[in-house]
């Protein structure tokens, strides 16, 4: 079973290798995928997917995610088909998601899909035998982002265990921080949630932490001192449209901006992550710091996605280690 979070699987597709969510993956599976990504980082260009067709169906546009997946497929020798604008597809003519998925299933070996509706990827995985990779379903799940975050943390810290992870900014709507929080639960993290009152971590995730014995501290101050103990500083966008109270937005909008002069007391190993695109929450003077890691983090997305595509196609870590198609 791949998507353990929905532990009662559909009867149709017990063999389906789709990746809809990784929130419930155990340590072993996570490590397996991290090891795969490590192999791909060492040798990102291969022909291991020669003859395969990867479909990227972006019912909702997301240029970054699509480019990353398509690059991953191309660098492994697969061909890519797909669409990115729903206006040019029959979805806008009223074709159901099921029909689109069924049609594309005739052509592709794996379907990477992004959709604005929550649960779309899970449903798609139930109507086809072609594996689905969820590239984001509304505000619900985005497992490849989580995987690249985990890989970035693992790579920079050498472990996922016992880390101080500081999440800053919009913790209410930030899907990436929620997914990361759940994926880290078995690694004994200590979270610091730094957010304005209106965008604080939702109750359900705090409850999740309590139920899973995850330590967390909430604070509103974002200063040189409050981040001194961080191993990972995970920054997110504070967007104007998220606020019901615009006075509140004006008051806090500059309070969650990271500047280079705030890094004086931070730990040597500390790395700054950000799901990108940034607006103004990380000053440009931070880019030159040794702690800045967000661009490398985006590149790690390539290796993480190479791993996910291979995993759903049944290509194992051993296959990748013994791969003779490296370019």
């Amino acid at each position: 079973m791949i998507f353990d979070i929905y532990s009662i699987s559909s009867d149709i597709n017990m063999e389906n290798r789709s990746i809809v969510s990784i929130a419930d993956y155990g340590k072993e599976k996570i490590q397996y995928l991290l090891d795969m990504a490590t192999e791909f980082e060492a040798h990102p260009n291969r022909q291991i997917l020669k003859g395969k067709v990867v479909a990227t169906l972006f019912f909702e546009p997301s240029t970054r995610t699509r480019l990353s997946f398509e690059t991953a497929a191309n660098r492994l020798g697969a061909r890519v088909i797909g669409f990115t604008d729903p206006k040019v597809t029959s979805s806008s003519k009223g074709e159901t998601l099921k029909d689109t998925i069924k049609m594309v299933s005739n052509y592709a070996d794996v379907i990477v899909m992004r959709h604005k509706l929550e649960g779309a990827a899970l449903y798609a995985s139930e109507v086809t035998n072609v594996p689905i990779i969820n590239a984001g379903d509304g505000s619900n799940l985005h497992p490849s982002q989580t995987m690249l975050d985990l890989y970035s943390i693992y790579k920079t810290q050498g472990t996922l265990e016992n880390l101080n992870i500081y999440m800053v900014g919009d913790l209410k709507y930030g899907r990436t921080v929620h997914s990361l929080l759940m994926s880290m639960r078995k690694y004994n993290p200590t979270f610091h949630f730094i957010a304005p009152k209106e965008l604080e971590m939702p109750e359900e995730y705090k409850l999740y932490c309590q139920q899973n014995n995850i330590k967390y501290i909430e604070q509103q101050d974002f200063t040189e001192d409050t981040i001194a103990d961080a191993d990972i500083l995970y920054m997110t966008r504070v967007q104007r449209e998220r606020f019901t109270d615009l006075m509140e937005y004006e008051r806090v909008k500059d309070a969650y901006i990271l500047r280079a002069d705030m890094l004086g007391k931070c730990k040597d190993n500390m790395k700054i992550l950000h799901p990108l695109p940034r607006v103004n929450e990380i000053e440009y003077d931070v880019d030159d710091s040794k702690h800045a890691y967000y661009f490398e983090q985006a590149r790690n997305g390539l290796y993480a996605r190479e791993a996910l595509i291979c995993d759903v196609l049944g290509i194992t870590l051993d296959d990748i280690k013994n791969d003779t198609s490296i370019i």
């Binding site: 009662i8 159901t96 998601l97 099921k98 959709h115 604005k116 509706l117 929550e118 649960g119 779309a120 899970l122 449903y123 379903d137 509304g138 505000s139």
Partner: peptide, 21 residues
């Protein structure tokens, strides 16, 4: 434990409210 096609989801952006399923 499981209710199949009995209940409507209250989430307007849930796939079940936008697809014949």
């Amino acid at each position: 434990d499981t209710l199949t096609n009995i209940v409507k989801c209250a989430n307007p952006v849930c796939i079940t409210n936008n697809e014949p399923m």
